[in-house]
Simulated assay, not measured.
Amino acid sequence: MFIHLGENTVVPKKEVIAILNAQLMNKSDINKEFMKLAEEDGFTSNITDKAVLKSFIITTNKIFLSPISPATLKKRSIKKEKNKIYSKTSRGQQ
């Protein structure tokens, strides 16, 4: 299963470690330091040209900066079970 992060970017759900609110990330000195080091080492990927960043998605390989809110990304990550309806022809019966 994959999560769409916005702007044609998808990541496997199993690689996502955390989805964090961008406003909260900027309030802590330790978070600012973490992001600064990640940017310097090339681990960040800004997936939008928009100035508004709403979330940071930390994966096993990279940190994505997204314009999509953490709540919306959470909804996208929930697997929705679909009821499968089998007709007689789909089961091989006629």
Rank of each mutant, 00 (worst) to 15 (best):
P70Q: 00
K36E: 15
D41H: 06
R76V: 08
A22P: 05
T60N: 08
K27W: 08
S66R: 00
P12Q: 09
I47K: 11
N46A: 12
L24R: 13
G92V: 05
E7I: 05
E40P: 04
K54P: 03
K13C: 12
Q93W: 15
N61E: 07
I85C: 13
I58L: 14
R76G: 03
N8S: 14
Q93A: 12
I17M: 11
K54T: 08
G42N: 09
P67D: 05
N8E: 15
I68F: 00
K50A: 12
V10H: 09
P67W: 02
V16K: 00
A18E: 15
T9C: 13
I17K: 14
L53V: 09
K54G: 05
I58Q: 07
M35E: 07
A22E: 04
N46C: 14
I47N: 11
P70A: 01
I63K: 02
E39Q: 13
S66Y: 03
S45C: 10
K36P: 00
I57V: 15
V52F: 11
L37I: 11
T48F: 12
M1S: 14
M1N: 12
F34K: 06
L24Y: 11
L65V: 01
T60P: 02
E7S: 08
N46E: 10
I3T: 03
S55R: 02
I47C: 10
T48D: 11
I58C: 08
G6Y: 01
V10M: 09
N26D: 13
K79F: 10
K82E: 13
I78G: 09
A71H: 04
Q93D: 13
V11Q: 01
F64R: 01
L65C: 04
T48S: 15
H4M: 09
A51K: 14
D49Y: 05
V16L: 00
L37G: 06
